[in-house]
Amino acid sequence: MELQTVKFYQTGTFTVGNRLLAEDERSVQANTERTNSLNSGHRACQGCGEALGARYAIDAAMRATNNQIIAVNATGCLEVFSTPYPETSWQIPWIHSLFGNAAAVASGVVAAMRVTGKTDIRVIAQGGDGGTTDIGFGCLSGMFERNDDVLYLCYDNEAYMNTGVQRSSATPPAARTATTPAIGPDPGNVAGTGKNVPLIAMAHNIPYVATASVANLRDLEFKVTKAMGIHGARYIHIHVPCPLGWGSAPADTIRIARLAVESGLFPLFEAEHGEVTGRTPIRQRVPVDEYLKLQKRFAHLFGKEPDTARIAQVQATADRNIARFGLLGD
């Protein structure tokens, strides 16, 4: 997809800002007038990918809607670290109800906006992977199926981090979590399990589904902005590394997210009405090892004897994604 027609070689298309671009061509995050929807003082861990992803996405949505956003939050890290009494980090109207009902609460907010004639106010629901792919999945599917005018943002850090890193249906094969320990003959999470919610979302034929990553801000903002230009149920699945749960250096959060994309493990694509309509090509392809090695949750794959068989399985997943979504570009 075309993000920017002019290539700027020094600053590139991929940095947050670019002094050589016109103000309206820069990313939302480059702007000093950005909302900072999620404000300083929140209690996310150092290097939290979710805090970053949430601010990226909501700020972009705020710009796209002239600041007319109400957000509904599922229980989880994002909720806990942003709103411990007596301090909230949210700068926007925001509600947290339960772990599993964010999509439904958002449907209710939308209904209220519609019935009170405030249709310029747009509604976002957001949750982690547990609150989205597991416990909130019923409400999510219901919201999709009714085509309610909600943008649902899933911040996927691939496990239940708030409760202490337990497996979710978004946990990748081989990953160590508190409930898939790296012990026994088949350490870590079982291969061949889990679910791909973006594809399931597509199966609802909703107007817009996309994946995004904190490693590619321009792409993320493009997708959120596009989503806000569409009415009906929309879903964006955002990959947000978790230094605590993944056992990675806080400074590596974006690096790891980028390697997930560049290895093909986290494909960036868009789909409209059930059909894939866009993909963000891999810029510099890397083998999955480079991604896995930076994370202690995969450390058992790189012991004295590397577990080449399982690494190959992970590589096969990446290769399949690359082929399936055509991630190597033209």
Binding site: Q10, T11, T15, V16, G17, N18, R19, R26, S27, Q29, A30, T32, N36, L38, N39, S40, H42, A44, G47, C48, G49, A51, L52, R55, L217, T253, I254
Partner: peptide, 17 residues
Amino acid sequence: FECDNCYGVCPDNAVIK
């Protein structure tokens, strides 16, 4: 060169432009 990356990537909005 003022690419704004630090300003953008800080999870704590702790960079002042």
